[in-house]
Design a protein around this nucleic acid. Structure first.
Length: 599
RNA sequence: GGUUCGGUAGCUCAGUUGGAUUAGAGCAGCAGCCUUCUAAGCUGCGGGUCAAGGGUUCGAGCCCCUUCCGAAUCACCA
């Protein structure tokens, strides 16, 4: 049993015995002792002063004596500072804990069974008219990490993507391609499909703005000009044709979407993300209409004189929300309802998590209420995993102003920088093939990018400065990967010397403060994983990994793992190193960050 | 204006359910450390009114109220 748990139970029993009060063992505060005091675990006695009716010091003293009696194998000795009871734990307990951590391949993970709750996570959700940018990268990395975290906490997870493949935006790209494309394809141009389509989207916008400008110059007011410009009218006509199923338009749409999907797949692969099921809005938007009609019949919604359908949410403290336009076409909300319906037909999900930016907080507040009204049992408790925007030094990313950080460019730059970095190193790895070097550069470059994004609290807006490239030193992914690679190197060398870490560790070795602190730290991994799942926040795992590795590094410089004379101590330090590497591998794994055996 | 979220070092960020005279990392700056298990590292130094004010209590960066500043949102856009 865990050390803290045993202490908490014993303390609760002692309190009941001495002062006759029931205390839940979980409510007893146990924390790591500050380095300036002697001890490993500290029990805070302030909450029990009312029960003991004694001074803090006296209360702590009594509790300490009681614990020495009750769990003598755990508590070796204690001291009292004000209301803090500092406990020195018997070394054998720490050895036991270390064995336990090393004994499990996935320490801190909750196993998934058939009976585990089924959680669906929607993330990515791209539009098909432009390539992915840094904002999407944050979404994809968070979505993937969250899926891993939910699984580590004992949930069955279905990762899903809803592709926004229909609407005026894709018609704009199609039209521009028809007008100015001369039949250009990804093959003939050598461009990635999503970039090719993105270029035509930009081209449309450019010509469109010129038209508007010209109309304004002719005396038309701007709002009218925006609607009257020939290009936008043509795009609208194309959308109507699309909705009517015009074979020519549909064929073009299909062809161009395929190009985009091929491009996205490359980016997804580079990011290391994947999906179990992909939905397309072209399939779901009609379902949404049906569902709204259904709600209309049941009286949840109402129809206005112009034919548009609305939901009145004023009772919930929100506004009235449009669900169908007066011409009967669907809006964003309608599509999400349709998608929800199809999903629930496919999977009997218990919980739905939407990974979508915080700009849509209001949308999901409304969606939750609507899905609940329409009878989705998970609607009320749906989770909008709302993450903050990625900002640039001069504000938001705006594709029109060309101030976007392209995902593919960024990935390529990161890998090149990592490659350069290792080439510049003095103590380069020798006997390494070119292919291995490239693979390491990929792992390290992506590690830097992923860690940079995931270490920040998902809810907060974050800043990315393109002028300064993402760091490889300090609090970064590569630093953690580097420590991992070094530990692996130590373990390889130990093995070469014939030293293996046994399952049963020697108990005679004295443990230093640093070693005990490291074992405690390792043990916290389980709590961190749990917390990440509870708060839907992978960032605490990233920060945990950094803290752990930082502590190990300091330990590593104070002691020699391989040169220790005392065999027992050496084995314990090797076991500790192994445990750190394993926890780091699992922790980074949850974030989708790979670890290199050498770097 | 309503709603929601945020404000911690020059910059980027941590800070678990309130805990210990001194609120932590990294970057940037300065000074050291490669015959020693990988220097993508380690050790020092400087840098803070935790936006401001009040409250709750043994104790507040964290909880409550007020104010200031910033962001998002409040579309027959997606």
């Amino acid at each position: 049993m865990e050390i803290t748990k045993r202490i908490a139970l014993a303390a609760a029993a002692a309190i009941k015995e001495m002062w006759g009060q029931e205390v839940a063992p979980e409510s007893i505060q146990l924390q790591e002792t500050r380095p300036e005091f002697e001890g490993n675990v500290t029990l805070v006695v302030f909450p029990f002063l009312r029960m003991s009716r004694k001074r803090p010091e006296e209360t702590a003293q009594l509790l300490g004596e009681c614990l020495m009696r009750e769990v003598p194998d755990v508590v070796a000795r204690f001291n009292v500072v004000k209301g803090f009871l500092n406990l020195v734990i018997a070394p054998a307990q720490w050895i036991g804990l270390l064995e336990e951590i090393n004994g499990q391949e996935r320490f801190g993970f909750t196993p998934v069974t058939e009976a585990s709750p089924l959680v669906m996570i929607e993330y990515s959700s791209p539009n098909t008219n432009k390539p992915l940018h840094l904002g999407h990268v944050r979404n994809n990395l968070l979505g993937w990490a969250l899926a891993q975290v939910m699984e580590a906490n004992g949930n069955r997870v279905v990762k899903t993507n809803i592709v926004n493949d229909r609407g005026i935006h894709i018609c704009k790209s199609m039209l521009a391609w028809l007008k100015w494309g001369n039949g250009e394809t990804p093959e003939t141009s050598g461009k990635k499909g999503d970039h090719l389509i993105g270029d035509y989207y930009v081209a449309f916008d450019k010509h469109y703005r010129e038209e508007v400008k010209e109309l304004v110059a002719q005396g038309m007011d701007e709002e009218q000009a925006k609607q009257e410009a020939p290009l936008i009218k043509e795009a609208h006509e194309m959308l109507v044709k699309w909705e009517q199923g015009d074979p020519e338009v549909r064929a073009l749409w299909k062809k161009m979407n395929e190009w985009v999907y091929a491009g996205f797949d490359e980016t997804y692969k580079a990011l290391g993300v994947s999906f179990d099921k992909i939905y397309y809005e072209s399939d779901t938007y009609l379902e949404g209409k049906k569902k709204v009609e259904e709600g209309l019949e049941k009286g949840f919604f109402y129809r206005r004189e112009d034919g548009s359908v609305w939901a009145d949410l004023t009772k919930e403290g929100l506004d009235e929300k449009l669900l169908l336009r007066s011409d009967g076409t669907s809006v964003y909300m309608t599509q999400d309802i349709g998608t929800a319906k199809l999903r629930y037909e496919d999977y009997p999900i218990d919980k739905m998590i939407y990974v979508v930016g915080n700009e849509q907080n209001y949308h999901f507040q409304v969606l939750s209420i609507l899905l609940d009204k329409l009878g989705f049992k998970w609607g009320k408790d749906l989770v909008h995993f709302s993450y903050g925007m990625v900002e640039l030094p001069n504000g938001k990313m705006k594709s029109r102003e060309g101030t976007v950080v392209d995902a593919d460019d960024l990935i390529q730059t990161m890998i090149e920088d990592a490659s350069q970095m290792s080439a510049d190193k003095v103590n380069k790895l020798e006997d390494i093939t070119e292919a291995e070097a490239q693979e390491i550069a990929r792992i390290v470059g992506m590690g830097a990018l992923k860690y940079f994004i995931l270490k920040v609290d998902a809810r907060k807006n974050m800043l990315f400065n393109p002028e300064e490239s993402i760091d490889f030193n300090g609090n970064t992914g590569p630093f953690i990967q580097y420590t991992y690679a070094r530990i692996r190197s130590i373990l390889r060398k130990a093995k070469a010397q014939g030293i293996e870490v046994p399952a049963k560790l020697p108990t005679t070795a004295e443990l230093s403060e640093k070693e005990i602190s490291l074992i405690q730290h390792l043990n916290d991994f389980a709590d961190t994983v749990r917390q990440a799942g509870q708060d839907y926040n992978p960032s605490c795992i990233a920060n945990y990994c950094y803290d752990l590795v930082k502590e190990y590094n300091q330990f590593y410089h104070d002691f020699s793992v391989l040169r220790e004379e005392d065999k027992d101590k050496q084995v314990v330090r090797l076991a500790l190193s192994e445990a750190v590497s394993k926890v780091v591998r699992n922790g980074l794994g949850l974030l989708g960050i790979e670890v290199p055996e050498r770097m």
